[in-house]
Amino acid sequence: MSYNNILIEKENGLAQLTINRPKKLNALNRETLEEIHNAFAELESDENVKIIVLTGSGEKAFVAGADISEFADYSIAEGKNLAAKGQEEVFDRIANFHKPVIAAINGFALGGGLELAMAAHFRIASDNAKMGLPETSLGVIPGYGGTQRLPQLVGKGRAMEMIMTAGMIDAKQALQYGLVNHVTPAEELMEFTTKTAQKIMRNSMVAIGKAIEAINANDEDGVNGFDKEIENFGKSFGTEDFKEGTTAFLEKRKADFPGK
């Protein structure tokens, strides 16, 4: 499938999805969101892809927000639909994706850009990265999960402050807050992210998918995360990966997981 606003590169089990609108600082417009949705459908069905890395083109921005020109004249109903469709088709889809998704934040991650990064399973930032949710400075609130995922990651008080002030924090502060897992020099971001992905791929991708589901269950209304953990723990015993992992352990060798 060909895309106008994103690039996909696949190598050794790793797919890099790059938002490619550098003249717009990779801002998210409707077409780009649709392409991200379609790309994840493609990556989900590709058995050779084990992990996805999200990043932005150029050195200035991961994603510097949503394309404001597209929704400046929206009605209440249109605004609600914009958020609902975006959350369902892109942000929630990424958050619940059964393959690991890592955000490699290079430069600005603002508004919808930070929300995209927060939808990923974890984040690695370059030392020149800046992050924030500036929506209240435009008379609106974050609409792609920002009011929900930011408190989960940094705590309610810090999230309140970031959203109310509409300010930015730098990579060092983001690391201190727990918003990102690691900070690297800009020139080492992709190398570090790739090495992290390779560490993940040594393990059972089937088990990792079940772990993602169990971890996310803790945030779902009406779902007992402990029950989901017990259920998925039990299911693991029926996989070929479990048989290989335990056999390899007992035989004192490295496991060669079949991914089934």
Rank of each mutant, 00 (worst) to 15 (best):
E35R: 07
F226Q: 13
H182S: 02
K80F: 11
K252S: 04
G222N: 09
G112A: 01
G225A: 01
E9A: 08
S126M: 03
Q16P: 01
Q16Y: 12
D46T: 03
N29F: 01
S69W: 10
K199Q: 11
G79W: 11
E187G: 02
Q148N: 12
T184C: 01
A39H: 12
N203Y: 08
D241R: 07
A171S: 15
E88F: 13
K85D: 11
N181M: 13
H182Q: 14
K254N: 08
D46I: 02
R149T: 08
N48F: 02
L33G: 12
E34R: 13
T136P: 05
A61H: 04
F71I: 14
A84Q: 15
A171G: 06
A129S: 15
E78F: 06
S57C: 03
A66Q: 11
K23L: 13
E231C: 04
K260N: 14
V154A: 05
E78N: 04
E34N: 13
Y3V: 02
I52C: 02
I163R: 02
S57D: 13
T194H: 09
G209Y: 10
V180R: 06
T194W: 08
T32R: 03
A217C: 09
T194E: 05
A211G: 04
R158D: 14
G155H: 07
A27N: 10
F242T: 08
G234R: 15
V180Q: 06
D256Y: 06
D46E: 11
G234N: 15
Q152F: 04
R93V: 01
T194N: 07
I212G: 02
Y144Q: 10
S236W: 13
G107S: 09
L150I: 07
G143T: 04
E9M: 09
A166M: 10
A129I: 08
S2L: 14
R93L: 08
A83Q: 10
E213N: 10
G56V: 06
E251T: 05
N96P: 00
A248R: 07
V223K: 11
G111F: 06
M164I: 05
I8Q: 05
V63Y: 04
E70W: 08
A104S: 08
L54G: 00
A41P: 00
G58W: 08
A117K: 03
N20R: 12
L189S: 04
E35P: 03
I102H: 01
G132P: 11
I94N: 01
Q176H: 13
K156F: 06
K243A: 07
T18W: 07
G132K: 05
L175S: 07
I105Q: 01
Q173P: 04
T184N: 01
G113N: 02
N181H: 11
T147V: 12
H182Y: 15
A197E: 06
M131E: 05
G113W: 02
Y177P: 09
A109N: 00
K23H: 10
I163H: 01
I169A: 09
A174Y: 11
K195E: 13
E191K: 15
